[in-house]
Amino acid sequence: MKLAVVSLNSIWEDKQANLEEVERIVQTLNQKVEYVIFPEMSLTGFSVSNLALAEDFENSNSIRAIQKLAKENQMNIVFGLMISSGDKKYNSCIAVNNKGEIAGNYEKVHLFSYSGEDSLITGGTQLKSIDWEGGWGLSICFDLRFPELYQELSKENLILLNIANWPKTRVTHWRTLLNARAIENQSFMIGVNRTGVDGNGLEYEESSCVFSPKGEKTEPFEISEKVKIFDLNLEEAMEYRKNFPIKKDRRNSIYREFYS
């Protein structure tokens, strides 16, 4: 399975400029990969206070543009966008398949109260898996600190994905948590982070990466300034789970008592 992770330097609140860059990158990847993944709030940066950036999910120009791009290039695309539904706004991870159809939409469950995200955005209430090859479990940025989410997602998915705007000041946490989620769930853990400096003055370090089900950092076979291309062998995850079946030792009935 060939996929590209894009460490996009999202231009602050400029959807058109970011969309043009997304289109350029996807077109350069044509026929090289099956999947391409962009960071959280790909077209705006993490500007949760500007609620005017939200787009109605059923009538979104940005989603339509990505659908057209995916169909024309026969590529599966994952990207982040603030969407609206009625009077509520959500920080979403949207997956579009290579036919230009929406394969899934995940609304961020764990909101980053430290930044005030929880006072502006509505938290999602459902986990989301995509039935792409191997099964994909979706998550966004701050979700990474909550391992329970990934235990549930990994029941049916060999690939766990987190798209983020994770600042350089805490990038050691980012890499460590991605590694931990891979190890404890025996899944490929893909983290896609932005780069550059955002409109709040936060700096981001190029840190997009993939960890194997054994917790080993997977090396890309091709690297450019913004893009890393990986070739994942899903049989590795299936074989490892079979040979080292730690999930069968989980005691879910006791865990439920802890959280009741």
Rank of each mutant, 00 (worst) to 15 (best):
Ile102Met: 08
Trp136Ile: 11
Gln126Asn: 07
Leu202Gln: 05
Met238Glu: 14
Glu72Lys: 13
Phe188His: 06
Ser92Ala: 15
Gln126Phe: 06
Leu161Val: 14
Asn30Ser: 15
Asn98Arg: 10
Ile11Tyr: 03
Thr44Cys: 07
Leu43Gln: 04
Ala180Ser: 11
Phe112Gln: 04
Lys214Ser: 14
Phe46His: 14
Gly134Pro: 01
Ser113Trp: 12
Ala52Ile: 02
Asn157His: 06
Glu20Arg: 13
Thr176Phe: 06
Pro220Phe: 13
Arg194Ile: 08
Ser129Ala: 09
Lys108Phe: 00
Val36Cys: 14
Glu206Asn: 12
Asn91Cys: 12
Asn9Tyr: 03
Asn18Gly: 06
Ile11Pro: 01
Ile94Phe: 02
Phe188Leu: 05
Glu205Leu: 11
Ser60Phe: 05
Ser129Met: 03
Phe188Gly: 09
Asn185Pro: 07
Glu239Phe: 02
Trp166Phe: 11
Asn165Gln: 14
Gln31Gly: 04
Val26Tyr: 08
Arg241Asp: 09
Ser47Val: 01
Ser207Arg: 05
Lys108Thr: 02
Glu236Lys: 14
Gly124Gln: 04
Gly45Val: 10
Thr169Asn: 08
Glu235Val: 00
Ser212Thr: 15
Glu107Cys: 07
Phe57Asp: 06
Lys108Cys: 02
Glu152His: 05
Ala103Gln: 06
Ala54Lys: 04
Phe188Ile: 04
Val192Thr: 12
Ile130Glu: 01
Phe211Ser: 07
Ala95Val: 12
Gln31Glu: 14
